[in-house]
Design a protein around this nucleic acid. Structure first.
Lengths: 251, 251
DNA sequence: CGACCAATTGATCATACTCAACATCGGTGG
DNA sequence: CCACCGATGTTGAGTATGATCAATTGGTCG
């Protein structure tokens, strides 16, 4: 009798199975670069074959708006690359950025039918889009995914609290230092622990995230540069003395 | 043949069934005053019989700490009455209150094993305590409850975003006005639409919630009183001109 | 009634904002 | 390839909002 390998997916191996489903394996969920970073890590191999049918890869040019607050939520997204800013606007135009999100992050998990904030691309973003209705029914049959999404929501809530502390109780210098340190921490979690931090967002974005003005952000960055704590480079900063930055931004 | 009434609970009616389980019906989940306000509204009648076994009613005196940030999360709570402040403290003692919670609110939903903020009672609080481990396993068998909890988490996230906008982009006057309006909104949802708002928390609490100092909160409240927009009363304010308050605190 | 803590008000100060000038970057077309 | 333009970033001067320091009033509870 011939020995047969038993796997979660039908035939002999995932590649052979996929060969029959779609032409481009690179765009397939199974091979997605963001898979292990995102909520998709909670999916089982057989789920991935299905999510692939539901999903569509979209490219969002720098500066483009993905959706605005109050709009009916039609889609959910998983970010594959690039950075988005999430924000709310007051009637008189003042803006507060509530978060920057990037590779692996999930967007649009609000259960209410409407987006509670606006989102636009800081630089060119590549994301995986799924119809929200389809995603909801997909999720309702998979408690492990709901559970995972709940974990993510709780993590976001903790980040929101961190940011409230920053906005309400920290000085301009502390705000900038804490932001840079959180960026470094994020890079670290994604593997790339470089001394140079990419800052794809403008000074205006930074200001609206930190509850400051453009000028104050500039001044603080310049001051840190003057103190040789960092070096300003195009679209980023190089950390020269992370230790001293931690002393300033200690949480 | 005799006609038999079929119900979700065994015998003829819930009261008869309960008579056999515990002596005090007032303390029973089925009769809980906070039931319809809280996540418990997602529970089915037969669930309630079980939660009653798990839960314990606790009284927390004014000023007492329920738990502190970083501590292992042993319990979850549903607030029946009173107000709690949730906050984080910076190493140097600065405090940011991330929220006030009251009747119907759920406390301790963090999935991570540790509390992410500290909580203490503003005034005397009456709450329903359940062991977190037991609650988790209870929940894992009830997807509708997990779903509901996820909704609650998302609602909290929206409130957190609101508060970020307030902390980062609004003036002292706007902060106080917006806070009072949100209090009124909360009362309205709970049914009591009075013109007098109870403020059980101190000016220090208010300041640490709004990202201001005690003195600034005082001055703004005095100014609003001088403008006949409100009247300061012991442990509260009476709104004289809600319309003008809305003009100031418009979101 | 008096002691203590919370709340209020005043005077002064400092941080971060506003307004303004100038520099730099990136893209476009001559 | 370089000159030009608009957008973005940086720096300076002066100001205002809210913080700090200090004194006083009011409320609560033994």
């Amino acid at each position: 009798m011939v020995q047969v390998r038993v796997a979660a997916y039908p035939v002999n191996g995932i590649d052979e199975f996929l060969a029959g489903t779609r032409s481009d394996p690179a765009s397939h969920c199974v091979n997605c670069s963001a898979r292990h970073l995102s909520v998709c890590s909670a999916l089982k191999p057989e789920d991935l074959l299905y999510t692939h049918q539901l999903s569509e890869t979209v490219r969002i040019p720098a500066g483009e708006t993905v959706f605005i607050a109050g709009e009916p939520a039609r889609s959910v997204y998983t970010i594959k690359s690039g950075t988005l800013r999430l924000y709310r606007i007051l009637p008189d135009g003042r803006r507060q950025i509530v978060g920057f999100i990037g590779a692996g992050d999930f967007l649009g998990l609000a259960l209410a039918g409407r987006y509670s904030y606006s989102a636009d691309a800081v630089d060119e973003v590549c994301a995986c889009r799924i119809d929200r209705g389809l995603y909801m029914s997909f999720m309702s049959k998979r408690p492990h995914l709901l559970r995972r999404l709940h974990e993510v929501a709780n993590q976001e809530l903790i980040l929101a609290h961190d940011h409230m502390v920053l906005l309400g109780r920290r000085s301009a210098e502390e705000k900038v230092a804490a932001f840079l340190l959180s960026l470094r921490e994020r890079m670290r979690r994604l593997g790339t622990s470089m001394v140079t931090l990419a800052l794809p967002m403008s000074r205006a974005d930074l200001a609206d995230y930190l509850g400051l003005t453009i000028e104050t952000v500039c001044r603080v960055v310049s001051k840190l540069a003057r103190q040789k704590i960092l070096l300003v480079v195009p679209h980023g900063v190089r950390l020269l003395d992370p230790r001293r930055l931690e002393e300033i931004g200690a949480s």
